[in-house]
Every structure is written in structure tokens, then in C-alpha cells.
């Protein structure tokens, strides 16, 4: 589950970014750590990020949503879509 950063003066919007990345075909939750967006894709969608155009699109979206860095958390192979462990807790700045 992704939680929004309500009233974030930096203009970062983690929830909107997670939604936009999911629309690229990479369903994910997202954790904001300052300017770093940690994207937590479901196990099956990590490989989609091998495509350079997908990576470029994610980077572009992250910039649009106020982030300077994007990192893809590598899921445990035991962790798949819909598991409790895949839920993210958003850390605020």
C-alpha cells in the first residue's frame, strides 16, 4: 500500500508516481525517502524494467513527481504480488 505525502512542500507525490508507473505495466508500491523513490514492483514485473524505454519512462515520471533518484527494490523470490510483505510503509522526510 502506498501512502501519499500530503502537503509535501517539495511537490513529491509518491502515490501518484506509483500509479503512473503501474500504468507503464509495472505494478508496484512505492516508498519515498527524501528525494529517493524506492519502487517495489511485484516479482513478476521486475523483468519489464530491463527494457531501456521502460526505465527511461520511469525516470522521467519520477522527475515529474519531484524525485531525483529512483531505485528498484529487488524482491525476495518468496515475495509475490499481493503478499503482506509486499506492502510498503511510507517513510516521510
Amino acid at each position: 500500500m502506498t501512502q501519499p505525502e500530503r502537503g509535501d512542500p517539495t511537490g513529491r507525490n509518491a502515490e501518484a508516481l506509483a500509479t503512473a508507473i503501474a500504468e507503464l505495466g509495472v505494478p508496484c508500491s512505492l516508498e519515498a525517502r527524501g528525494g529517493l523513490a524506492v519502487v517495489m514492483p511485484v516479482l513478476e514485473s521486475v523483468a519489464a524494467l530491463r527494457a531501456p524505454e521502460t526505465r527511461r519512462a520511469v525516470l522521467s515520471l519520477a522527475r515529474e513527481h519531484g524525485f531525483t533518484h529512483v531505485a528498484i527494490e529487488l524482491p525476495s523470490e518468496r515475495r509475490g504480488a499481493g503478499s503482506r510483505e509486499n506492502d510498503a510503509t511510507l517513510l516521510r522526510d
Partner: peptide
């Protein structure tokens, strides 16, 4: 936890972040 930076190596990456 382990995450791959999507942009890859950047000299002074943490300078940018901060």
C-alpha cells in the same frame, strides 16, 4: 533490503540527493 538505482552509476550521487 536491496535496490538497484535505475539511472545507474553517478559520481557524487549522494551530493545530488542532498
Amino acid at each position: 533490503r536491496v535496490a538497484l538505482d535505475l539511472r545507474g552509476f553517478r559520481s557524487g550521487s549522494l551530493n545530488v540527493l542532498h
